[in-house]
Write a protein that binds this DNA or RNA. Structure first.
Length: 275
DNA sequence: ACCCAGGCTAGGA
DNA sequence: TCCTAGCATGGG
């Protein structure tokens, strides 16, 4: 099955190969990725994208949700462009979008991101899936289930190369299975959701916000890492050791419901030396 | 041999 | 409340 979405300003390269998702690869002029137990191919058009389901039974609706096809992107551009710094940053990264990924996969992927490099995270997630995920077709494995992660011991999970983060994944998996946290977060205010996420082992302020931004469509949340702090220092007069919550509030005062989008652009631009 | 990577935790000031 | 050593692993 193949779907064509006519959307302006949707860059597959910027979106799928950025640091928000880890299971997409460029294969020639297309991008191939895994969502749940489906394999998808994405191709860039001038005024849209084509998504082909290579394997699996993912629905059109689920694809629209994952890619956030109906997000009011133009409105976001319009509002943020009133700010001079944002206007030029947006232009340098046009088409970067925030996806709506699976909460569990996003959570465990970003627990793996602590003091890690994107290249390593990608390798480790593939290895985790190979070792502990369901094999749904030749060479392709789903991301491990929470139940499976909860049964592992530290030695087993370390075979995926995740190092000290393995024990956090196991502990967090066990904790989640005692309740329904990941679903409950949908109904929580963002600040409460952030607090609850940081109670999980291996999840601090920054990783909690990655999960909220990339898996719960909380576009007002800003994952504040070393690069984001550089942005705050260089353009907003902050000091290097400003408190996380203070920076978070400043971002919201500046850009409100678009703060997460704004700083995702600033993050990408800063990392690539564009600003 | 070092240093760094989309940080977090525990322990002490 | 603030500060930092240590953390596994891979790559420069």
């Amino acid at each position: 099955m193949q779907y064509r979405f006519n959307v302006e300003n949707y860059s597959l390269e910027k979106t799928l190969l950025s640091g928000q998702a880890f299971r997409w690869d460029r294969k020639g002029d297309e991008f191939v990725g895994i969502i749940g137990k489906s394999i998808l191919s994405a191709r860039q058009l001038e005024n849209g994208i084509i998504i082909e389901v290579l394997s699996g039974d993912i629905s059109k609706q689920e694809i629209e949700k994952y890619f956030n096809i109906n997000y009011a992107y133009e409105e976001m551009l319009k509002v943020l462009s009133k700010d001079a710094l944002m206007a030029r940053t947006l232009k340098s990264m046009t088409g970067y979008r925030i996806l709506h990924q699976d909460p569990s996969e996003t959570l465990f992927s970003f627990i793996d991101s602590a003091n890690n490099s994107i290249v390593n995270i990608r390798k480790q997630i593939e290895k985790l899936s190979e070792l502990f995920g369901e094999k749904f077709t030749d060479e392709y494995y789903a991301f491990p289930s929470i139940e499976k992660l909860a049964t592992l011991n530290e030695d087993e999970i370390r075979c995926a190369g995740v190092g000290f983060r393995g024990k956090y994944m196991i502990q967090t998996a066990k904790r989640i299975l005692t309740g329904d946290l990941l679903n409950e977060l949908n109904r929580e205010d963002s600040k409460i959701a952030h607090e609850k996420l940081t109670e999980l082992p291996g999840v601090g302020d920054k990783i909690a916000d990655c999960v909220l931004l990339f898996a719960y469509n909380r576009y007002e949340r800003v994952p504040i890492d070393v690069w984001t702090r550089k942005v705050f220092c260089k353009f907003y007069g902050c000091t290097p050791k400003a408190k996380y919550e203070d920076l978070q509030n400043l971002a919201y005062d500046l850009y409100g419901e678009y703060a997460g989008y704004a700083f995702s652009y600033l993050f990408e631009a800063m990392r690539m030396g564009l600003i």
